[in-house]
Amino acid sequence: MTESAAEWASPVDVRATYPGLRPVRDTPSEAADFLAEVRSAGEKWADGHHGDVVSVLLEAAGDDPELAELVRGSGSIIEEFLEGFRRNAVKPQKDLAADLVAGREVPKSVLHGLAPRYLVVIARGSVAEQFTGVPDEIAGPGVLSTSHDGDLVLLVPDTDAGRRSRITEHLAGRLDGNGWIAVARRGRAKLADGFREAADVLRLVAAGRRPSGMYSVPDVLVEYAVIRHQEVAQNLVDVIKPLRAHTALWETLAALIAADYNRNKAANDLFIHRSTLDYRLQRIASVTGCDPTSGRGVQVLTAALIADSVR
């Protein structure tokens, strides 16, 4: 029976199939209520032994002899029941976490069996490369894991703040100064949106060469706003585009940002004299129109470099 037939079947259909039977209910709404009860019983049925179906439906019929007769003799009623069962049947999930973060449809019974809210965790670096699982005494039940483009993805039930902290602290401790963790919080029906947010945060901290650690949107508010506004992002890319023709200047700006604007450290990281660094910064100002030695210039150039890196 098709879905539309199952949903719109009426007492008239049953009487046409079984003309010898009197109407089992005086109004269509009562008959519809009975069919709804049948569908509900089918959705809850988990035994899998078809020989028990009639017994279950006879209980639904109660003391009404006409309903009991329908249960015994009506193939359409049995089909309604089995249709409900098939709709709610749970197929094995090869990678439930991957399906959830990708926004793929999962059976409602599976979705309803999940925690109400989750912490979406994406880890990149040594913790992702060497991940063998969060110890049971730390993770507890219900943590889902998968991988995405080499990154580790965890869905941590967001029902216990202490447990959530233990897991994130465990992962942060395993970064060993190499890589980042990005997190976002969402309800179980919006995990794909949470994954996109955490992935954006991870892209931003990687592009900005932030120190190894754990980050969320509040840590990258300016950059996050930029990439969410395509016109602004493109304008910033245009600002920094001329540096593409000057490899040394591009590397100098990247080193300055990575050094958190400490010019002595940037010069050491580049293995150049401080005066050479200062000259290059002047050239960057000339090429881009933004002075990397000023607060505003650094802000614009940093946002531009990140916008170029994540586009």
Results as ranks from 00 to 15, higher is better:
180 W>E: 06
123 A>S: 09
151 D>H: 05
189 A>H: 11
260 D>Y: 01
52 D>Q: 14
58 L>T: 10
236 L>K: 01
4 S>Q: 12
148 H>V: 12
301 L>A: 03
91 K>R: 14
222 V>G: 05
158 D>G: 06
280 R>K: 09
204 L>V: 07
210 R>I: 00
260 D>L: 05
110 V>C: 08
81 F>W: 07
109 S>N: 04
126 S>I: 08
187 G>S: 12
14 V>Y: 10
6 A>L: 13
1 M>T: 10
117 R>Q: 13
263 R>W: 01
136 D>E: 13
119 L>K: 10
63 D>C: 06
158 D>M: 03
205 V>E: 08
27 T>E: 15
89 A>H: 12
70 L>R: 13
255 A>Q: 05
308 D>K: 06
95 D>F: 08
79 E>P: 00
237 V>L: 07
23 P>D: 12
204 L>G: 02
88 N>T: 14
265 K>I: 13
107 P>L: 04
240 I>N: 00
45 W>N: 08
209 R>D: 09
35 L>F: 15
163 R>Q: 09
88 N>Y: 13
165 S>P: 00
118 Y>G: 03
87 R>D: 13
156 V>C: 05
37 E>C: 12
303 A>N: 08
106 V>E: 05
213 G>E: 03
257 I>D: 07
87 R>I: 11
135 P>D: 07
224 Y>V: 00
144 L>C: 01
51 G>Y: 10
45 W>V: 10
52 D>V: 12
135 P>A: 09
154 L>W: 02
175 L>I: 03
77 I>A: 11
122 I>W: 02
125 G>Q: 00
234 Q>G: 02
192 A>I: 06
101 V>I: 15
186 R>L: 08
66 E>P: 02
303 A>Y: 04
97 A>Q: 06
113 G>K: 03
203 R>S: 14
134 V>T: 08
276 T>A: 13
130 Q>E: 13
63 D>E: 15
77 I>E: 07
9 A>E: 11
91 K>H: 11
22 R>L: 14
187 G>N: 09
202 L>T: 03
93 Q>A: 14
124 R>A: 11
117 R>A: 14
253 L>E: 04
137 E>N: 08
244 R>V: 07
208 G>S: 07
278 D>W: 01
288 T>C: 08
48 G>F: 09
171 L>D: 01
53 V>S: 02
167 I>S: 05
217 V>M: 04
154 L>P: 04
48 G>H: 08
224 Y>K: 03
16 A>Y: 09
246 H>N: 06
30 E>T: 13
4 S>A: 14
246 H>W: 04
218 P>G: 07
42 G>Y: 06
267 A>Q: 01
152 L>D: 03
285 A>T: 05
190 K>Y: 11
188 R>F: 11
124 R>D: 12
288 T>Y: 06
19 P>I: 07
59 E>L: 13
176 D>M: 12
251 E>Y: 02
293 T>D: 07
66 E>T: 15
192 A>L: 05
136 D>C: 00
28 P>M: 08
147 S>G: 04
225 A>H: 05
161 A>L: 12
36 A>P: 03
51 G>M: 09
125 G>F: 02
71 V>F: 09
86 R>D: 10
96 L>P: 06
256 L>R: 00
